[in-house]
């Protein structure tokens, strides 16, 4: 546990990809791929409000511009 905690203090979950998907309600959604410190890539879905807020937080003009940013940017727009 302590080794893992130590690894966390030097590693952050990072956005490694983003693409669009169809939401169940007919709206487009943003699918973010996040790589966690354990190396596993998980997925987070954002709606338009959160998705555009994230792009603004990251000063990203494109979905590709989100790659490499810390997961904390996702919280910034909230």
């Amino acid at each position: 546990m302590s080794d893992y905690a130590g690894a966390l203090t030097s590693q952050e979950a990072v956005i490694v990809g983003a693409e669009l998907a169809a939401g169940h309600d007919g709206e487009a959604e943003l699918v973010l791929r996040i790589r966690y410190p354990n190396g596993v890539v998980g997925v987070v879905l954002l709606d338009a409000e959160a998705g555009f807020a994230l792009m603004q937080s990251c000063a990203a003009d494109s979905l590709e511009g989100l790659t490499g940013h810390s997961w904390r940017k996702i919280l910034e727009g909230v």
């Binding site: 669009l20 939401g23 007919g26 487009a28 943003l30 709606d47 338009a48 998705g51 494109s62 979905l63």
Partner: peptide
């Protein structure tokens, strides 16, 4: 997916 220009849609994120 459906959108109009009344609301910003992620369809236009690119």
């Amino acid at each position: 997916i459906s959108f109009s220009l009344l609301n910003p849609s992620l369809f236009l994120a690119r």
